[in-house]
Computed example of a mutant assay.
Amino acid sequence: MGMLAICNAGSLIAATNLVISLHPEDKITVKRGAALTALGFVYFMTLFELLNSLALSTGAGARFRHKYRLSCGDVLDITNKLVSAVQAALSCVTGAIVCLWSCTRDFMRSSHYMSEAYAWFGAAYFFYDIWSMYMVHVQMNSNPEVSSSKRRLSKNGSAPLSSGDSTVQKKQGTTFLDYCKHEPVILMHHLFIGGFGFLVIVYLRGNLGDCTFGFVYLMELSTPFVSVRGILSRMRLKSSRLYIVNGILMLLTFFVCRVLSLPYVCLMYSRVLGLSYVDAIRSLPTGCKISICILLLPQLYWFYLMSAGALKMLFGTGKKSASFSGGDVAPSSLPCGGCGECARCAAQAGASQCGAAQCGAPQCSAVPPGKAHKRS
């Protein structure tokens, strides 16, 4: 774990050292850019592994997993979202630097090396994340091998471990090709951003400035709130005040940074040209207008879905149902006081009570087949 921490911190320091001495309007050479990409791979992969080690191999991590009844798949999903939030923070820092430099000078021509530098460094994230999400997919679609019918204690005896902490056995449908078929949209998104988006920022824009790309980087400001939302869901805290507050912040940042940002950039462009808003948009090359639509239309759709979900959560009257993906169920409200997966267990075990060997829920492996859950 110590070596992971050293490699993680060292890669970020080395990447910073590669660009810190450059003049703001310098270009990133291919050699320097390739080094940044390699360091990006090291940084994001070691960060993912470091967080997993903290959660799966320490006493504090064991207590955390036990408290929130997290399986190994839950842990990997949480750490994947934490790395995503870190990447978003780095992207926002880059966007702020670029906007403060380029947008306050020549809108059409001014550039800052950070836009290209982070394009090289950040491209590694999108390809790392494909691998990371595949690891989560494998864990979520695997059966735990239960070595004992009783709950196992960690080495220091601080907390019992869930069945998700044991070695997993792959089911059918967990090959990488199966994952690609299962998640084609997110896969294409990552390949598009990490490939075509990188080429646009580094090569295809020619001598044009990067003020617009600064706003594109700032679109990631909502991502940490999206990640926290997913993490709280995994921890079964969807009914908590923190979940509601985070959801409101997520909506606000998403609306400002993803829905309003591109129209605002078009407004800045119209002022530079001295044209009306509509005429300025009409004057854009066809490729630019298509790119704006590709970026903006999905944001509008996602914002609609998020808003509808928020309204349903705040004003809906229906009872919340338990779900294995993170529904909120208070153990005390269940007949058995367990994990809230009784119906799922019964369906898989073929019995009216939970069966340990067949159920994938973290709490269910704590009891022998045919016995009801006990309160943890």
Rank of each mutant, 00 (worst) to 15 (best):
L237N: 03
R234A: 08
L237H: 03
F254W: 11
V256W: 10
L251S: 08
T253K: 02
C257M: 13
T253G: 03
C257Y: 09
V226E: 05
I248M: 11
M235P: 05
T253P: 02
M235W: 05
L251E: 05
L249Q: 00
F255R: 05
Y243F: 15
G247T: 02
F255A: 10
S240I: 09
S239F: 00
R236C: 10
V256R: 08
L232I: 04
L251P: 01
I244W: 13
K238H: 03
M250K: 01
R258D: 07
R236E: 04
V256F: 13
R241E: 14
L251C: 09
R234K: 15
L251F: 02
R241A: 15
C257A: 14
N246E: 08
R241W: 11
F255Q: 06
I244H: 11
R258H: 06
T253A: 10
S239T: 14
M250W: 06
L249D: 01
M235C: 12
R241F: 13
L242N: 07
V226S: 12
K238T: 15
Y243V: 05
L260E: 01
L237F: 05
S233Y: 00
F255P: 03
R229T: 15
S240A: 11
R258M: 04
F254C: 03
M235N: 05
T253F: 13
F254S: 03
V256H: 06
L242M: 12
N246T: 09
R229C: 11
L252F: 11
G230A: 03
G247S: 08
K238P: 06
V245W: 12
L252Q: 04
I244A: 14
L249M: 11
F254I: 03
L252P: 00
V259W: 02
I248K: 11
R236L: 06
L251D: 01
G230L: 04
R234D: 05
S227E: 10
L260V: 05
L242K: 09
L242Y: 08
V245D: 10
S239K: 15
I231A: 06
V256P: 04
V226N: 09
V256L: 14
L242C: 11
R236S: 12
I231V: 12
V245Q: 07
L252T: 10
V226M: 14
I248F: 14
V259D: 09
L232R: 01
V256T: 09
K238N: 14
